[in-house]
Design a binder for these strands. Structure first.
Length: 898
RNA sequence: GGAGGAUUAGCUCAGCUGGUUAGAGCGCUUGCUUGACAUGCAAGAGGUCACUGGUUCGAGUCCAGCAUUCUCCACCA
């Protein structure tokens, strides 16, 4: 470790070295320690396909701040990292890479494909975590996990089998969201709605019995081949004569019934709806109610069905393997094999030729798309595995209502409840290979379904050995839902699990509450009987300089690695946490980063100043016996800041916390204390400057600790160069409030002197007197001692040549400055413009009078005096008193000048 | 259709449970080679806290309404 500080702050020169130093020291490692309280965060696992982006930087920074603070506060603080296999995203990338080589999944076969996927994981899985390290994350890498590692996979199987045995997982034909591009079902949460320009096609269906035509509007004419009914409302007067009649489906000339169903809304359109149970969620419901056949006309990869598909269906039927709700399949004839969009065109053309297309109207509507590839979702009836949500959602709602898990900020609870209360069963099977394969086995002989953690040797029903495992894998989020406990050893009752679980804080963005947070809550309650974490700390997203979402298509993304390279991780971290309140979005800006970097530079130089003074004197890092007023002042402020910072952190107000540290360092320590101390370092005797150096050093040490969770690198780098105990600042004690460092009187004394300094500077500045031109200062005050002790500061900081203090002076023709506690004369004869000075004094007099009027108004108000708390009333009273005094002094000054 | 943010200085944002002379950073003006820092120091200008009501002794802060804007959810023949 460096023993001295370089002349300039250059983060790139030491950040990596510091990280290595922490790793070598094993400082991130947490143990189950019965003498300490546990504090646990599990890291939201980034996708193995991921590149570090600014959103990660925010998420990780917040977690690192919390974990470093708790660690320094004496907790056994575990931050458990890991990565997610991201089934659909990873598989898509691999398939894409293979496509470029002209290889398909089927060419390769499942096993070879998985080998390739694991190769991919080995190659890229480490990339994201390497990038994370650049941020300074202090997570326990020895416990790094992967959602598909042995332990997590075991937990997945355990959960699946358990839920199946309890009847909470079932398999069946249901309406699901199908992505024809990814070729898999996806869950409701994975559908994103996008506004699209579409059309209404008004089609005429002929009624068999009466010969009249019914006008039916649809946004998807290609689905008409799968119509198995048209619906009307039973109360609709217009159509009462049609109850029990039929229509002839155009193009197919197929006779289908007219049914009555509440889904048909008399107010909307013509009041007649075509019903396609296989390809529309609402129609599916109607089909169930009216016992309609389900006819599938799309293949799963987005084409119209044909003879082949019918054949496959017939074979299944012949075997007697048709499950409940298994859709029939239609040979779409001339449309068979067409992409659905092409079929739409062809069908519209044919209907036009028949004269059965009445009109086409433009229409904008929200269309469901796949959240990964943004392909339009095709609702399909398909055989999938589902989690029955009702029994799981109930306790998950209660746990948050009871505040077993709290959301910060609280308002996100509503989003959670809204989702949980309207939740439908969760489709968990995916037609993908990369992921946890569903532990269900089917007997080829008797059709028995066996769900078990281990591959069964033989069928428990018929005894044969012809069992095949389900081809599908589980939704990625099924395994992430177990993350808080699967990573700690569950289902085994490990020591870690017992000590670190339930975890404390989950830090994540609001965009992921449904996908992940909600599912962790109900999974944890179901399987561990406890909530997975006590607090969900929600943050917003990082937007670009113009407030837009960062996106690949806009190309407005900011690469955190570039920012770190240029300004350092500390500046990036500070920028991400400053001036932000929980749950709100953050706007990235280069200016903000620069400001943060300047702050780091400021701290660096202040530390260099301390070094310049202590290096030749073997100064001990402890407080001296005798403390001067300004020492007590800074210590008292420090104490107060430490108290508040801890309180703010406790409440997850990280932005407020860091703001206070920032102000203390820059305004109090650098701009005032260091300047005060210069007077002692350069003018006083030996003893005084030694004690000054001690306090200077002590406070610097405390500052570095306070700031360390936010800016870990620079604080460690500096800390290592100053006298200290312990190996790393990471494990030093975080400053807290200590009653013995409360010095209210000294604080007041210093404030009096500081006010005088500011007032003198102000006057000099207004009169454009350069600092080089010193002037004698007379201070008339009741607090003679305070100002006598403070005169050295006034000389140094207010460009005074000499200071005289007494309880009054009789001076004419001087500039007069009045503070709350003193009347200050600066005889700058030749510079004084009497008129200007009079004007200024009168202006000030007006201002003070206005304030006094305010105070007095309050005091005259009976309601205020009788109802406001005594402390508030006293405060206003004291204020009014000061104001009256000040008015007296200013008036006297005006008199004297006249 | 439902829900939730946001609205405070030229810009970007803080302001916790109601009590300050409403704050910060950037930008702006003026002065300064001040014994670490010009990535700096000092002084300053700039705000009827979107709007309208209400509660209260007292409202940027609580309540109701309204406007603008963003987001989420649901629906959409």
């Amino acid at each position: 470790m460096a023993k001295e500080l370089a002349k300039n702050y250059k983060p790139s020169e030491f950040e990596d070295k510091i990280y290595d130093f922490w790793i070598e020291g094993n400082y991130f490692h947490a143990e189950a320690d019965p003498d300490k309280k546990p504090y646990t965060i599990v890291m939201p696992p980034p996708n193995i396909t991921g590149q570090l982006h600014i959103g990660h930087a925010l998420d990780e920074t917040l977690q690192d701040i919390l974990i470093r603070w708790r660690r320094m506060s004496g907790y056994s603080a575990l931050w458990l990292p890991g990565t997610d296999h991201a089934s659909i995203a990873t598989e898509a990338k691999i398939v894409e890479a293979m496509r470029k080589e002209g290889v398909s999944k089927d060419d390769l076969g499942r096993e070879k494909f998985l080998e390739r996927a694991w190769d991919w994981k080995r190659e890229y899985g480490g990339r994201i975590t390497t990038q994370l390290r650049k941020l300074g994350v202090s997570c326990d890498w020895s416990r790094e996990r992967f959602t598909m590692d042995e332990g997590c996979s075991d937990a997945v199987k355990e959960v699946f089998v358990k839920l199946y045995n309890e009847g909470k997982i079932y398999r069946g034909n249901r309406m699901v969201n199908w992505c024809p591009h990814c070729n898999t079902s996806i869950s409701d949460a994975e559908v994103e709605y996008e506004e699209q320009q579409g059309h209404f096609w008004h089609i005429l269906y002929k009624v068999q019995e009466t010969g009249e035509f019914l006008e039916i509007a649809t946004t998807r004419p290609e689905t008409m081949l799968g119509d198995t009914a048209v619906a009307i409302n039973k109360d609709d007067e217009r159509y009462k004569h049609l109850h029990g009649c039929h229509v002839i489906l155009p193009l197919l000339d197929k006779v289908i019934p007219i049914v009555c169903d509440e889904h048909a809304d008399m107010e909307k359109g013509t009041g007649v709806v075509k019903i396609t149970p296989a390809h529309d969620p609402n129609d599916y419901e109607v089909g169930q109610r009216c016992k309609l056949p389900i006819v599938r006309v799309f293949t799963y990869d987005g084409f119209m069905t044909g003879a082949e598909d019918v054949k496959a269906y017939e074979e299944l039927k012949a075997k007697g393997n048709l499950a409940e709700n298994e859709p029939e399949v239609l040979d779409c004839g001339k449309y068979a094999g067409m992409a659905t969009m092409d079929a739409r065109k062809a069908i519209v053309e044919d209907l036009t030729a028949l004269g059965q297309l009445k009109e086409v109207k433009p229409h904008t509507h929200d269309v469901g798309t796949c959240y990964r590839c943004h392909t339009t979702i095709e609702p399909m009836v398909s055989k999938q595995w589902f989690v029955r949500m009702e029994p799981l959602a109930k306790p998950a709602i209660k746990a948050v209502k009871d505040k077993d898990t709290k959301f910060v900020p609280e308002r996100f609870e509503k989003i959670y409840f809204n989702w949980m209360e309207n939740i439908k069963d969760w489709c968990i099977s995916r037609q993908l290979w990369w992921g946890h394969r569903i532990p269900a086995y089917y007997c080829e002989e008797c059709g028995e379904v066996v769900v078990a953690k281990e591959t069964p040797e033989k069928c428990p029903k018929c005894g044969c050995t012809h069992l095949t495992q389900d081809e599908d894998t589980l939704d990625t989020w099924f395994s992430s839902a177990l993350w808080p406990f699967s990573t700690l050893g569950w289902p085994n009752e490990t020591d870690d699990f017992k000590y670190f679980y339930p975890t404390n804080t989950l830090v994540t963005g609001y965009d992921i509450i449904f996908f992940w947070v909600a599912r962790m809550v109900f999974s944890a309650l179901e399987h561990t009987g406890e909530v997975p974490f006590d607090t969900v700390f929600i943050h917003g997203i990082v937007r670009d300089e113009l407030g837009r979402k960062m996106s690949k298509s806009l190309g407005n993304g900011v690469d955190p690695l570039e920012v770190i390279e240029k300004h350092g991780a500390d500046a990036l971290r500070l920028m991400l946490v400053t001036g932000n309140s929980p749950g709100n979005d953050i706007r990235y800006s280069e200016k903000k980063i620069e400001a943060c970097s300047n702050f780091a530079n400021k701290l660096w130089n202040a530390s260099r100043f301390v070094h310049m003074n202590i290096d030749d004197h073997e100064v001990k890092n402890e407080l001296p016996e005798v403390l001067h007023t300004e020492d007590k002042w800074i210590l008292s402020l420090l104490n107060y800041v430490a108290k508040e910072v801890n309180e703010n952190l406790e409440k997850f107000e990280l932005g407020i916390a860091v703001q206070k540290v920032y102000e203390f360092i820059w305004d109090c320590y650098c701009d005032w204390y260091i300047e005060f101390v210069k007077a002692r370092l350069f003018f006083d005797g030996e003893e005084s400057f030694l004690s000054a150096e001690q306090v200077l050093l002590y406070v610097l040490d405390q500052i570095l600790r306070l700031l360390h969770p936010f800016m870990p690198y620079i604080t460690e780098q500096i800390w290592q160069t100053i006298p200290h105990e312990g190996e790393t600042i990471m494990l030093s004690e975080y400053p807290t409030y200590k009653p013995e460092f409360d010095f209210p009187e000294e604080e007041t004394e210093m404030l009096r002197v500081m006010e005088a300094i500011r007032a003198i500077r102000n006057r000099r500045s207004e009169m454009n007197v350069p600092p080089s031109r010193k002037a004698k200062v007379y201070i008339a005050t009741k607090f003679e001692n305070t100002f006598k002790t403070g005169s050295a500061f006034i000389i140094k900081l207010a460009s005074a040549s000499e200071v005289e203090v007494a309880d009054s002076f009789d001076i004419e023709d001087a500039v007069t400055v009045v503070t709350a506690d003193a009347k200050i004369y600066i005889p700058l004869d030749e510079l004084v413009d009497k008129e200007a000075e009079l004007q200024r004094l009168n202006k000030e007099l007006d201002q003070v009078k206005k304030r006094l009027a305010q105070s007095e108004g309050k005091l005259k108000n009976q309601g205020f005096v009788s109802k406001a708390p005594a402390a508030v009333v006293d405060k206003v009273r004291a204020q009014a008193e000061k104001e009256r005094e000040k008015i007296g002094l200013i008036e006297a000054a005006i008199e004297a000048l006249k």
